[in-house]
Write a protein that binds this DNA or RNA. Structure first.
Length: 200
DNA sequence: GGCCAGGTGTAAA
DNA sequence: TTTACACATGGC
């Protein structure tokens, strides 16, 4: 039996023009500290609720300004995104550790590793990869609920996150090795999300 | 009113 | 190593 590879799926999604009216990157404000906040706030939470929280955080979405927030204030601001009692201290600890280990956000972007991210409380596989892809522009493919649901619709399932990621990245790396892989992975992820909203 | 959403950490088997 | 559960709001 012939099994689809991820490049087949990529082309299938491309033909549907799912990102026709979207900016280059589907995640808002890529390459900024705000991406880290959004990544943690959206854990098991709809993006609509995250948007409300991000609006409340207006003016505090840089590393330096975020670090001036009191935990109680932050909890109140991110309340719409849920799980605020655990997200608030985790976000502050993350910001503190970035300051401590990298001093500036741009040094974090250039030098952070997946291992460093996974040591942070509140960052697991998916959040680490979202940060690497959308905040640091690394060539990494994010695996989320949408991704798994799409693959399942093609009868493709794995038992571990890393196997999903390997499946997704492998044939794109070999077929599109001369392209901007970061942007390709980001758009692939974006198309997967839009496909879910439209068809699944 | 119940179920789900762009997961993660922890405790118990 | 796997499984179960807590975390919490807002939309449908």
């Amino acid at each position: 039996m012939l099994q689809k590879n991820s490049f087949d799926i990529y082309k299938y999604l491309e033909d549907k023009n799912l990102l026709l009216n979207s900016p280059e990157y589907w995640w808002p404000n890529v390459g900024t500290f705000e991406v880290l906040i959004g990544t943690i706030l959206t854990q098991n939470t709809s993006w609509k609720n995250v948007e409300k929280a991000l609006e409340n955080l207006d003016g505090f979405l840089t590393l330096e300004s975020f670090l001036t927030l009191e935990e109680a204030t932050l909890k109140d601001m991110i309340k719409p995104s849920g799980f605020y009692n655990q997200k608030a201290p985790r976000l502050l600890q993350l910001a503190f550790n970035i300051k401590k280990d990298f001093n500036e956000f741009k040094n974090f972007q250039a030098n952070v590793t997946r291992e460093w991210l996974l040591m942070q409380k509140g960052i697991g596989d998916e959040s680490a990869d979202s940060i690497l892809c959308y905040a640091c522009f690394k060539d990494v493919m994010v695996v989320d609920t949408y991704t798994k649901r799409l693959l399942k619709s093609f009868n493709i399932e794995f038992d571990k996150y890393s196997k999903y990621q390997e499946y997704l990245e492998k044939s794109l790396r070999s077929n599109l090795k001369d392209g901007d892989l970061n942007l390709i992975f980001a758009r692939f992820h974006g198309m997967i999300v839009e496909y879910n909203k439209e068809y699944l």
